[in-house]
Design a protein around this nucleic acid. Structure first.
Lengths: 340, 340
DNA sequence: CTGTTAGCGCTTTCAT
DNA sequence: ATGAAAGCGCTAACAG
């Protein structure tokens, strides 16, 4: 364990300090520390020894300024990291970009569009190498602006609106349609819908799927059974309880994300009805709830990894490659049945 | 929506570009953009207009290099962001530091000590303003080195070893002892223990609590009922199944974290025994499992926020304040009973 | 193989 | 009220 730095000053050692100690120029020290081969082995050793003795670490801030190449950071903009969907996404992204030496900066917006705007602007000012975002839904002009400044942008689970960017989507429409169709095929003719606020892309796509399944079965969904706007389980539970308390309650519920599914589950259990339950997104312990539960599943880790991969390719591109036009990856969904 | 930058070049506009367009020196432009009052209102307006027209954003990399003040980033080092414990911590930390204009960089180690070392070194090289870490357990010399270089370090849920740093802890010992005591008081004399690898601080503290409860009741825990080393629910399930298959199986299990509790729950349900279950950490849907479950709880969001607060105070201190000696905050625990 | 010069974008210091 | 010079730590580009 070398002394971290010269104790005369509280400042970390600089390249100059290393160079002086090794009695070479800063340039030679720089070469050695970047493994440039054109240095005499003896000099190399002296420099290495000096660096080790001082506990020298190159200042990455200075390097990125000099190299003009960005900071080796990627911004990840999400609404709520405590939601397991987003934390898995974050992990998937980080695992991929870390392999390229990039670090992930998190930006949690808490659903606030103003926070989201500021966050993106700040990430751009910080010269991140790219941004992966799951925009909350009320406009993407801030992302468009970032893209226009040359910062690669990748959207996860929502498509770009009004500008071009890579994105990874889930087959929201198809998955929701399949799950709803299953409920209808089992004889449920009154199927309720619980979903996120209408401005959220995935929510409206999944609602479209719900309606499409009805249409395919020659049915029309009762609009009174559609409740949008719930973001947290507690809200979803109230909304579900409201549906179950109707004079003609639904005999089944389709929930457009895991927050709504969990809320609906609580409402059904509390009410004691045998309402059938289906939802989008798998979640931990879904199999252990003691109620039959049909879920639309997809590989959520792969979603994050794919987003990371798309971004990394763009970052490499800026350093010389060429990926070509913007890509749109759609992840397939499956159906899983839990409970007895 | 202003044009993001001059389209002649793909480069974002610099202060010079703004200055030229406003026909002032870079210095004056800089003053205006930092709201330095000593500028003629007319000039100010010209500069503001130029900046807006170009879509100028100050280069934060250059600023931090010049100001020598760090980057406005804090590093968060955890083992597994997909674990809800860590994602809540991350959110708590971020919510506090964001209020001070700081961003959180995530470093996910995946339990690998080498990755952890590299990560910390890299964060230091990137000149983060501070580091919040939940070290995996095999040595903290890398954190000590960071602290020695003057980077504020705050540890969450583990105390510093071999160096001084602020930390936030949970009352691991007391919580585990209370939960175990409850099981013993209910007549369980064979209580199993499921926990993380022995190198993990929280695991061993909680094991200590488990033993202390036995001692206080005049009992000695059967060492064959102690299983350490499970990190994921699947491993924990196997370990629990092993205990339940013993000739003299435990009649109750105490699990030292949520991963182990979930695994134990699965094993108990699969076996169909009426083994009593207790564990450390609350988790979503713990109340919905249909089995009685006693959990040691604490405010995990507050844990993250406290860590963030301790760090922010140190960061401010480096800019002139004085917080004094290193602090150790211990969060109290409670006991919750779920299930019928 | 090694060193000198110059400058990334910004701001502090010292003029004017 | 404004500007010129210098430099944060580092590294391309060019000497020698």
């Amino acid at each position: 364990m070398p002394a971290p730095h010269d104790s005369r000053t509280g400042q970390p050692p600089t390249l100059r300090d290393v160079a002086e100690r090794a009695e070479v120029s800063a340039m030679t020290a720089s070469r050695v520390l970047r493994d440039d081969p054109r240095v005499l082995p003896a000099t190399r050793d002296r420099v290495r020894a000096a660096a080790a003795a001082l506990g020298y670490r190159p200042n990455e801030v200075a390097r990125s300024l000099r190299l003009g190449r960005g900071t080796g950071l990627v911004g990840l903009v999400v609404t709520n990291l405590a939601n397991p969907f987003y934390s898995r996404l974050a992990l998937g992204v980080d695992s991929v970009v870390a392999a390229d030496g990039l670090k992930t900066v998190i930006g949690n917006t808490g659903q606030d569009p103003d926070v989201e705007r500021d966050l993106v602007a700040d990430l751009v000012a910080r010269r991140v190498d790219g941004i992966i975002a799951v925009p909350a839904g009320s406009g993407q002009s801030h992302l468009a602006a970032a893209a226009a400044e040359g910062v690669p942008v990748v959207l996860a689970s929502r498509p770009p609106e009004g500008f071009a960017a890579d994105c990874v989507l889930v087959d929201d429409f198809g998955g929701a349609r399949a799950a709803t169709a299953l409920l209808l095929a089992r004889g449920h003719h009154r199927v309720g819908f619980l979903g996120s606020p209408p401005a959220v892309y995935t929510g409206t796509e999944r609602l479209r799927g719900y309606h499409a399944a009805h249409a395919a079965a020659g049915l029309t969904a009762d609009p009174r059974l559609v409740r949008q706007g719930q973001t947290e389980p507690a809200e979803a539970e109230r909304a579900a309880a409201g549906l179950l308390a109707l004079a003609e309650p639904p005999t089944a519920l389709f929930c457009s994300n895991n927050r709504n599914t969990i809320g609906a589950f609580r409402a059904v259990r509390a009410t004691g009805t045998d309402t059938a339950l289906a939802g989008f997104d798998d979640f931990e312990l879904a199999d252990a709830l003691g109620l039959p539960l049909t879920l639309v599943t997809y590989d959520s880790d792969e979603l994050g990894r794919t987003a990371g991969r798309l971004l990394v390719e763009r970052v490499r591109e800026r350093r010389g490659g060429d990926v070509g036009g913007h890509r749109r990856v759609v992840m397939p969904t499956g159906l899983v049945e839990y409970g007895s």
